[in-house]
């Protein structure tokens, strides 16, 4: 009886998930084996799109992988530091810090991008300040329209998103095991590694996954603050769908990226789990 009730309650969510996610994704998976001719879909079956992905877009995939990995690792690390501060160190200011972090989410994605353009530009705030204090003799042009700008902008955008699962994970850890560890003479570092981190593994994986997947699929940030050599896979997926109207190749690129991301996430999870396993 309880099972049936659960199934009924899950049905709307399952329906939405199937209709809005599984079906469109399945459609794109099918057409990734089709081809386009004069802007018209031709229904045949071939792996040629996947061959093209590995022959022509591998460099973009590798670049995207490494830049997304960098963003995900730095974002997760910083988010953990802030979440740790909120949970253990900030006391009654903890919720206030969390509130401030969350408020930045309402700034909007494009606003953040343009804010960083203002900060990092040749005549921007950072260059002007460094020139003024005499740190540099001429503006640093590599701050903007470069991979550095992409990492900074996405880091700023993703930090509040990564913070939420980590705060949730750290809040679920009770004080008792931490106090016991300290009573038994554990240092702060050992408490963190042996007690806290293993218990908030799901939060770390969630924060990493969010940062990694969003970065890997982004095409607006590299377009607006990346330079001429910062084209990520998302830019080529967009180009296939919008410019060349080649949905089959675009879909093949998207599924290849998704597969690489899932493998990377699985590897991250295994590595994290092994490194935090009790010795």
């Amino acid at each position: 009886m309880q099972d049936q009730k659960t199934k009924i309650l899950l049905a709307p969510a399952a329906l939405v998930f199937t209709g809005l996610f599984v079906v469109p994704l399945s459609y794109f998976f099918v057409i990734s084996f089709w081809r386009i001719r004069l802007y018209k879909l031709v229904q045949d079956f071939s792996f040629s799109n996947y061959v093209s992905v590995f022959q022509e877009y591998m460099h973009a995939a590798v670049f995207t992988f490494f830049i997304s990995l960098t963003i995900a690792i730095v974002t997760t690390f910083l988010a953990f530091a802030i979440a740790y501060l909120v949970r253990f160190k900030a006391g009654r200011f903890g919720p206030f810090i969390l509130y401030i972090a969350m408020v930045t989410m309402f700034g909007g994605y494009l606003v953040k991008i343009y804010a960083w353009k203002t900060i990092l530009g040749t005549n921007g705030i950072l260059n002007s300040a460094m020139l003024w204090v005499g740190m540099i003799d001429e503006p640093l042009s590599w701050l903007l329209y470069s991979p550095v700008a992409v990492v900074l902008t996405l880091l700023h955008f993703l930090l509040p998103l990564a913070l939420l699962p980590l705060v949730g994970a750290l809040n679920s850890i009770t004080d008792d095991p931490i106090l016991v560890a300290r009573d038994l003479g554990a240092t702060g570092y050992r408490t963190l590694v042996d007690i806290i981190l293993p218990q908030c593994q799901p939060g770390i994986v969630s924060a990493f996954a969010l940062s990694f997947f969003i970065s890997a699929g982004d095409y607006v940030t590299p377009r607006l603050v990346g330079g001429p050599d910062t084209f990520m896979v998302g830019n080529f997926i967009e180009s296939q769908f919008v410019n060349r109207l080649n949905a089959p190749l675009g879909a093949a690129l998207a599924f290849s990226t998704l597969t690489i991301c899932l493998i990377a996430l699985a590897l991250f999870r295994i590595l994290l789990s092994r490194s935090l396993a009790p010795k």
């Binding site: 042009s141 329209y145 330079g227 001429p228 050599d229």
Partner: peptide, 15 residues
Amino acid sequence: LKKNHLRTIASSYGE
């Protein structure tokens, strides 16, 4: 041109 001289490739005229 792209590798040695461009600052960026503008995505739009607004940009």
